[in-house]
Design a binder for these strands. Structure first.
Length: 398
RNA sequence: GCACCGGUCGGAUAGCGGCUAUUCCAGGUGACUGUAAAUCACCCGCCUUCGGGCAUCGUUGGUUCGAGUCCAACCCGGUGCACCA
């Protein structure tokens, strides 16, 4: 595949969804216009099993590079993951992952990433594992890498400064993390590294190492973190993560329940809607319509156009008109409480009783509020639990 | 090795030996809505025949009528000092 030199495309690549470019945008632009094919990568430490919409920003940027014909590497951080990236951590993490765990998580990451980037077809993304080289380094190799860093440089990071001030420990293990990530650039001999703006320090460490060990200028491109206009991170509050594999209805619902302030950032960072159009949006006037639109677009991207339509319809019927969904989860068990607990729809029997007391459980077929927690309905009866949970009771006295 | 500090709910915090373990964040339910956001109210260990029962402040013992709180030992984390002959 030939490298695309189209001005408009290059401009979009360098501006939309870009936080900063090191050393400068102009230098990179010049290089791109020359038509040189660049080798670039973005690393993902598989320390969880889910990618969320925050990851999507970087992956989309990945895809853009891919579409322009450059050599793009999806780097699985099964080596760096063992060190434990201290970025954004006010404390040393307590758990370090084993290689097996990381490899297992990586599998999930890859299936999820497939929704955004291409692993096959023209100019497919290459998958690499940094454990392949990091695990082979000897201590002496590490020393030779460490030679290029000073303690002052590493300790300069805000988070370490903060910890020093508070008297919180800085474990040597995490302290050395930037060396590992930096070495990735050297090992793969890349021209550019892509990552979230929170990764700037680590990526610049790689830039420095690259110059020291290979005499090469590595570019660094950072993408903004997904946050609303008040700077609040979107969809990352532990239980409320918007995952790339969330079911269409769930995904649609979660996006609808985001703050209005999130709408513009979502359009800018996660869709191809032209910037002119986005600028013309009137958030104050019709926030809900716009939110529906973004929810629809995202479901269509992560699932399919058909499912997006269905999810929108489901949303519209269920929540705006108060209608009952056609399909609902089955709850099997002896009593209603049994069934709800064993199907995982509520977390414990106590929790179920609490919901009954709060009059949150409604028998959809009779319209009655369930008031007795030991109630055993007829098999097939449908229930609404709270505002988002639905279930069909199936009698199963085993 | 020595000294000091700490370990309490998913996270962060409070807790002169006394009954019901505090507050904040996150989360749930209801009201209001656009499933918004903001706000307000209630809730937020488990089991229950709804009377109550059981568990729980790092672990194990002890002192006491009574221990998250005092004592001892141990485990874990941190900080400082020493060692580096």
């Amino acid at each position: 595949m030939k490298v695309v030199k189209d001005d408009g495309k290059i401009d979009e690549l360098l501006t939309r969804g870009v936080d900063r470019i090191y050393p400068s945008k102009e230098k990179l632009e010049e290089l791109l216009r020359s038509g040189k094919k660049l080798r670039l990568y973005q690393g993902f430490d598989p320390t969880g099993d889910k990618l969320h919409i925050g990851h999507m920003v970087g992956l989309r940027k990945h895809r853009q590079w891919q579409d322009l014909g450059h050599e793009v590497i999806f780097l699985v951080g099964d080596g760096t993951g063992q060190a434990g990236d201290p970025t954004g951590k006010a404390k040393t993490r307590e758990k370090f992952f084993t290689q097996e765990e990381l490899r297992a998580n990586a599998k999930n990451y890859l299936t999820q990433a497939k929704k955004i980037v291409r692993f096959d077809g023209p100019n497919p993304i290459k998958i690499m594992y940094n454990g392949d080289w990091l695990n082979k380094l000897t201590l002496v190799d590490v020393l030779n890498i460490a030679q290029h860093f000073s303690v002052q440089q590493l300790i300069e990071r805000d988070m370490f400064q903060g910890r020093l001030k508070e008297g919180v420990s800085i474990n040597l293990r995490e302290f050395l993390y930037p060396l590992l990530q930096g070495y990735d650039s050297v090992a793969m001999d890349v021209d550019l590294e892509l990552g979230g703006s929170d990764q700037t320090f680590n990526m610049l460490a790689g830039r420095m190492l690259m110059r020291a060990m290979k005499g090469k200028e590595k570019f660094v491109m950072t993408t903004p973190l997904l946050s609303d206009s008040k700077g609040v991170k979107i969809g990352k509050s532990e239980d409320n993560i918007i995952g790339l594999t969330d079911e269409p209805n769930d995904l649609f619902g979660k996006i609808m329940s985001l703050s209005d302030d999130a709408i513009i950032p979502l359009f800018t960072l996660l869709t191809d809607v032209p910037l002119d159009e986005i600028n013309s949006f009137n958030i104050k006037k019709n926030p809900m319509e716009l939110k529906k639109k973004i929810a629809h677009l995202l479901v269509a991207t992560l699932h399919s156009e058909k499912e997006a339509k269905e999810a929108e319809e489901f949303f519209f019927k269920t929540f705006q008109k108060g209608e009952i969904p056609d399909e609902m989860m089955e709850m099997r068990g002896d009593s209603l409480m049994d069934a709800a607990v064993s199907s995982g729809i509520v977390s414990s029997r106590t929790d179920f009783r609490r919901l009954v007391e709060e009059e949150a459980i409604v028998n959809l077929d009779s319209g009655d509020i369930v008031s007795d927690s030991n109630f055993t309905p007829d098999s097939g009866t449908r229930f609404k639990i709270g505002k988002r949970r639905f279930g069909r009771f199936i009698s199963d006295p085993s």
